[in-house]
Nucleic acid binder design. Sequence first.
DNA 1: CGGATTTGACCAGCGC
DNA 2: GCGCTGGTCAAATCCG
Length: 590
Amino acid sequence: MAKGSGVSIDSADPFRFFPHLPIVLNSFPEDNNNNRNLHNWKLSPMDATTLNRSPPHTIQFPLNLNRSHHHQDSPPPSDDKRMVIDEMDFFAEKSHDNNNNNDAVSTDAAKNDFHGPTSLEFNVNTGLNLLTTNTSSDQSMVDDGISPNVEDKRAKIELAVLRADYERMKGENQRLKETLNQVTTNYNALQMHLVTFKPKKTEENGMPDGKVEGKDIVVPRQFMDLRLATNGDADQNSLSSSEVRSHERSGSPGTNGEVKASKEGIVFDQDKKELHLHGCKTGREDSPDQGWAANNKLPRFNSPKDHVDQTEATMRKARVSVRARSEAAMITDGCQWRKYGQKMAKGNPCPRAYYRCTMANGCPVRKQVQRCAEDRTILITTYEGNHSHPLPPNAMAMASTTSSAAKMLLSGSMSSADGLMNSNFLTRTLLPCSSSMATISASAPFPTVTLDLTQSPNPLQFQRPQSQFQIPLLPQIFGQALQNQSKFSGLQMSQDMDPAQLSHQLQALPMNQGGQQNSISDTVSAATAAIAADPNFTAALAAAITSIIGGSGANTNNICGNNANPTTTTTSNGNITSTTSNSNSSFQGK
DNA sequence: CGGATTTGACCAGCGC
DNA sequence: GCGCTGGTCAAATCCG
């Protein structure tokens, strides 16, 4: 337990288990029916995803099916696969999409989609093409040698009908998928525009971003903040950082202290040093200047926008640490990091590495990576700050999760009358099924949410074996849950805060920082909710979400999900994945 | 050669 | 005021 450094993360916190993933897939009805196979393969979901976007070589299991397809000569796939049909279909579709739009002809995809025996059969016939063909093929299958009876014809017709339905369904699924993709792209595009224009706007207005921004978007504001932070402009405003610090110490409301004060104001407003949103006591929390906190000191708020900024400042202060088993030096979260320092932390023989996001100039996000002293197989990654730039799909999961957790943390703390965080609230929020997947460190200098992916689920919780692929989804869902919760809590807070503040806050939530991710996740969740009603689309939706979120990364390695992360691209270590296999270290990927 | 990493120096907050 | 600690900077070094 390192002292107070935000790190308390390490061991200080009573980590709780994170019954992750399993839930996810299981939640999908179809899984119950089919997925067993997938689970066995451990690839499934991801595979599906990867299939969709990655080149064939990445696909292992599915490909086989495809091959079978391609090699029509080869014997039909085992019946086992039949079970999976539905899921595969979706995936297939994706792959299909990826491959091309040419349904009819290449139908490859379509055929591929059908891994099931039926599919095969169809495929063989279908290879030629449409329903008609299929029918014919069907005939061969059905009739073989038998005289064409009325029944046969009926059967054919039925098959044709089914096939038609199938095609239709496929089409729908595809459309849904396209819609999701569209939304995602549009969102990213908007995000980019915002990032581009926002600064100008605020400057032009000469207004404290507050208002304008508030309405428009929060992201920009962050951006502004970030710039300030990075540029060290804060000082320009009036006081030097040192001055600020001195003020803080003295307890003067101005300067940096203002940030806090204002923040607090959001909640209680007064008690400056005693009660903080964070639930931390004064001491270190006041040392925003330190390390990561440096960002916090930067923005000084004199304008009305203050409360908003304050909120964000708070956000930046909030930290989210992820504990995961990994042999890799660092988990891959989809972002690009640059190491800028390494230090030995007190109480831990393992050095702590400092990284900063390099995906965009001035991105304030930083992370610390350190192995747990007690169990060196556990890698503790602590994130702080919000990205000031759009994130790649494969980075969204983690970013979304962390930002959501941070929001959650903050909102939770704010809502609490005494300034203490309600860990139960948070934990419950995270996942209904889990009561202890996340913990909040009240002792840490900064509010810290710890997501422990190293522990096995609670005995009472899901025992079911987990498969790796589940992991990827978790973060997203997890993040979503958090987000929703945070929003929810935000609403609740309304009671405690003034309308203006609330509005800002609410506005901030969606777009905030990792904002884009939030939006996306929101979008996805919304779509999910809408479609979920129809059980028939559950699987499709699952596949779509998976592809967009986890798969988008396109990292073949990503099987591991973020959070643990997906070791995406570069790093190669997919370890984490296994790591997450909370169920046990057994998986540790190697 | 350019970018990333390493590593010691430096700064600031905190406790004594 | 001093020492400890966390965090950052930046020159030196490494690597592709």
